[in-house]
């Protein structure tokens, strides 16, 4: 198990290298630079800036320098947030996004699995159609529409919750963003869960369990739940990585100082180091969560054993 884990983590290095290479050169291919402004800078200042950030070196040398820095765990200084390093920006933004994201995923998992199971058990009943219609709606409404609706209803009309702001992470301020993050995930998970549960309920082992005279509750919880959860678990890996790194839209609309908005701001400002840092960080999380998914798989399915 330890050996397997080690092998998997070492195997991630080439993946990350490819990711970094692609991101680095694509970013540089984009027109414009980090210090472009409306008014062009005097050439001397431009040259000084370029020199300071090593932008005057050949691209391949910059690339090598960047790789060496990353190996040392240093993502470099941000071009735009002058007094901050990229490491510091991630360190302040990520905990915020992580807290919202984990809460959202946890809620989505419980509610989605519950709703999906209910829909599967009452297949083609009104309960099933209601859940699936809501899920379809949840998937098709983009979050830039969903978030303002949430604000309108709960903050403006009902006045129960603040319309936005972080307020140092007060619980009240987190509710709407968490709901905004969780609803689409609930929709996906309940659809996935319904489909796999229906399939499992028709399978031979479930027929055997019923032939043994076990009550329906035991058949569902002990015999059907585990196999039905497997597709949800695979979905959950990348989904968790995506949600905990923060949603650009949700964080922008609710004014939350998370990691998500650095994605867009960094890209728009050609903040090379910030974009690279966020991309690499996201890549590491994706790899990490896929690895966790495989470990959970092994826990759920006795046929899967890593040695």
């Amino acid at each position: 198990m330890l050996r397997y884990s080690l092998k998997r983590l070492l195997g991630a290095i080439p993946t990350l290298l490819i990711l970094m290479t692609l991101a680095f050169f694509m970013m540089r291919m984009a027109p414009g630079g980090p210090f472009d402004t409306e008014k062009s800078l005097p050439p001397e200042i431009q040259a000084n800036l370029d020199k300071k950030y090593h932008l005057d070196e050949p691209l391949i040398q910059q690339y090598g320098r960047y790789l060496l820095d990353v190996v040392r765990g240093d993502f470099g200084p941000s071009f735009q947030y002058k007094d901050y390093s990229v490491n510091e920006l991630i360190a302040t933004g990520f905990p915020v996004s992580l807290r919202l994201g984990l809460s959202a995923i946890a809620i989505a998992l419980v509610v989605g699995v519950g709703l999906g199971t209910i829909a599967a058990l009452r297949q083609n009943s009104s309960a099933d159609y209601t859940v699936m219609t809501l899920a379809m709606t949840g998937i098709s409404i983009p979050n830039f529409v969903l978030a303002p609706i949430l604000i309108l209803v709960f903050a403006v009309y009902l006045g129960w919750l603040p319309a936005g702001g972080w307020n140092d992470g007060a619980f009240k301020n987190t509710i709407l963003p968490i709901i905004g993050l969780a609803l689409p995930q609930i929709a996906y998970i309940s659809r996935l869960m319904r489909g796999s549960m229906i399939e499992v309920l028709r399978s031979n082992p479930i027929r055997t369990a019923r032939a043994k005279g076990l009550p329906e509750r035991v058949v569902i919880l002990r015999h059907a739940l585990k196999p039905a959860l497997l597709p949800v678990v695979s979905f959950l890996g990348p989904a968790t990585a995506a949600v905990i790194t923060g949603s650009v839209v949700i964080e922008q609309i609710f004014g939350i100082p998370g990691l998500g908005r650095y994605f867009v701001q960094g890209a728009l400002n050609r903040d090379y180091t910030l974009v690279m840092g966020v991309v690499v960080f996201y890549g590491i999380l994706i790899i990490l969560f896929n690895f966790i998914v495989d470990l959970v798989y092994a826990m759920l399915d006795p046929k899967v054993r890593y040695s």
């Binding site: 399978s203 031979n204 082992p205 027929r207 055997t208 369990a209 019923r210 032939a211 043994k212 005279g213 076990l214 002990r222 015999h223 585990k226 196999p227 759920l300 399915d301 006795p302 046929k303």
Partner: peptide, 20 residues
Amino acid sequence: RGNRIGMIFQDPMTCLNGYL
């Protein structure tokens, strides 16, 4: 079921629960 009437099915490869 399972008490007064026992039942054996056709395909033993798929009839037991592989997760328990």
